[in-house]
């Protein structure tokens, strides 16, 4: 299973980015291969509008099963994620990626 995170860095101890559309990085963890890959999304700051769908489209390319984020995506992005069949968990703000993953494992995060 592949799990995606919205983050401010590319490591397990990086801080989560609570924003979805304008997140700085996307981290993807494959819990079978134990591989952690990342995507630098910082160029999104050049987009005046439509950051949500654009990031969602990028996320789709990584084909994750689950997304863990902070505030949750806005309406447009949410419809892309739904279409893509990605399950969203929110509430992972102000913590490291590692903590967010543990919270998800312990069923503490709220599913949308």
């Amino acid at each position: 299973m592949k799990i995606a995170f919205t983050t401010k860095g590319i490591y397990w101890d990086s801080v989560m980015d609570s924003r979805f559309g304008r997140t700085e990085y996307i981290l993807v963890y494959d819990d079978e291969t134990k591989e952690l890959t990342n995507f630098d999304n910082r160029s999104i700051s050049n987009e005046a509008h439509g950051a949500g769908p654009k990031t969602a489209q990028k996320l789709y390319e990584f084909n994750p099963d689950i997304l863990i984020t902070g505030n949750g995506p806005g309406g447009n992005a949410a419809s892309v994620l739904k279409q893509a069949g990605i399950k969203v968990f929110i509430g992972a703000s102000e913590m490291s990626v590692k903590e967010a993953y543990e919270k998800y494992k312990n069923n503490v995060l709220e599913g949308l």
Partner: peptide, 11 residues
């Protein structure tokens, strides 16, 4: 005004 400018100022 746009999400972009707001994000910039906040960032």
């Amino acid at each position: 005004n746009s999400g972009k400018l707001v994000a910039k100022v906040k960032n």
